[in-house]
Design a protein around this nucleic acid. Structure first.
Length: 353
DNA sequence: TTGCATGATTTAGT
DNA sequence: ACTAAATCATGCAA
């Protein structure tokens, strides 16, 4: 912080204290004979060597006197005005920029992914939300996504370190420039307004660098997401029981295998899957059954028989038999193959189509 | 490694 | 919004 001003001082003093030096240099280069040149250089060196603390102080005093001259502020203002009217007016035109929409998008995304949000809670919440969106069955979610979370927090850490580094560099550079300009403003027409403007220019430059950082972070997160959370990549077959419940419903509603919203919800609950997974399952099942009924005949027979048995036992118990979707909790019972039943089912289905 | 099974997504139609 | 149909991408047994 002190370094720079001092440097500036000595520089200023050099010129102010020894105006003849520059003159000498010019004369020296202009000369043609080597002897004279050598002599000049010798003189210059001599002068440099004889710069004493006293002469420095002298120069300082002279500078101070200049600064304290009663006409100085007026002159300064006039020069500033002239400058404002010429160079700065161009710069001033592009002064007010609206917040970059792209930057806002990136910010929002980073926030949503829990990269730029609050520490641990945000990240895991986002991961959980993402997991839910991916439609995970919930059985092995934590194990599934621990790797994802680890990678995400790695990205997060890199992002924050880099961001901090940028911010620090930006601040350092800004103060550096401000000091420089402030110091310069003692001898040159640099108004505080101009300094302010320069600072905002610097900030803009740095924020564009920040945007690159945010962009690449976003890309990294997207790649991570697609690698770890893409449902298709992480497809898991439903467990046997869930498949049975779904099949049970399907084959017992072959005439109209389109569960209502409520039915879907109930099935989802029973199978520990989401409603949309139920919809997917039925969509797939319908199309695949229809495409190759023969292949599903055996399966159809089995579930039809099971439903029949269920109904029979239910009615034997005196309870209602109109709930065929209720699965038999006893997983496997010997399934007779009533061919007529299949035929019936098939007719029902054909009727529907 | 291969081929089928299967859950998810995409596309197009209503 | 829901569905059929096609397609994708993975799971899994042989």
């Amino acid at each position: 912080m002190d370094e720079q001003p001092r440097l500036m001082h000595s520089h200023g003093v050099g010129m102010a204290g020894h105006p003849g030096l520059a003159q000498h240099m010019q004369d020296g280069t202009g000369g043609t004979d080597g002897e004279g040149r050598k002599q000049d250089i010798g003189d210059i060196l001599q002068q440099i060597m004889t710069i004493t603390d006293q002469s420095l102080d002298e120069a300082q005093a002279r500078k101070h006197a200049l600064n304290c001259h009663r006409m100085k502020p007026a002159l300064f203002n006039v020069l500033c005005e002239i400058k404002e009217k010429t160079v700065l007016s161009i710069r001033g035109a592009q002064e007010e920029e609206p917040p970059d929409p792209q930057l806002m998008r990136l910010d929002n995304m980073l926030l949503a992914e829990g990269v730029s949000g609050p520490e641990k809670g945000g990240g895991s919440a986002a991961a959980a939300a993402a997991a839910a969106a991916a439609g995970g069955a919930g059985s092995d979610n934590s194990a599934e996504h621990s790797d994802y979370r680890a990678k995400l927090s790695q990205i997060r850490q890199i992002y924050h370190t880099e961001l901090e580094k940028y911010e620090q560099a930006c601040n350092e550079f800004t103060t550096h420039v401000m000091n420089l300009l402030r110091e310069q403003s003692r001898t040159r027409p640099i108004s505080p307004k101009e300094i302010e403007r320069m600072v905002s220019i610097i900030h803009r430059k740095f924020s564009s660098i920040q945007m690159q950082l945010k962009q690449s972070t976003c890309e990294a997160v997207m790649i991570l997401r697609s690698r770890f959370l893409d449902a298709r990549r992480k497809r898991r077959n439903f467990n046997k029981q869930a498949t049975e419940i779904l099949n049970e419903y399907f084959y017992s509603h072959l005439s109209n295998p389109y569960p209502s919203e409520e039915a879907k919800e109930e099935l989802a609950k029973k199978c520990s899957i989401t409603v949309s997974q139920v919809s997917n399952w039925f969509g797939n099942k319908r199309i695949r059954y229809k495409k190759n009924i023969g292949k599903f005949q055996e399966e159809a027979n089995m579930y039809a028989a099971r439903t029949a048995v269920n109904a029979a036992s239910a009615s034997a118990q005196g309870s209602q038999a109109n709930s065929p979707s209720t699965p038999n909790s006893a997983g496997d019972f010997p399934a007779p193959q009533p061919v007529t039943c299949t035929a019936n089912i098939q007719r029902e289905f054909d009727y529907f189509y």
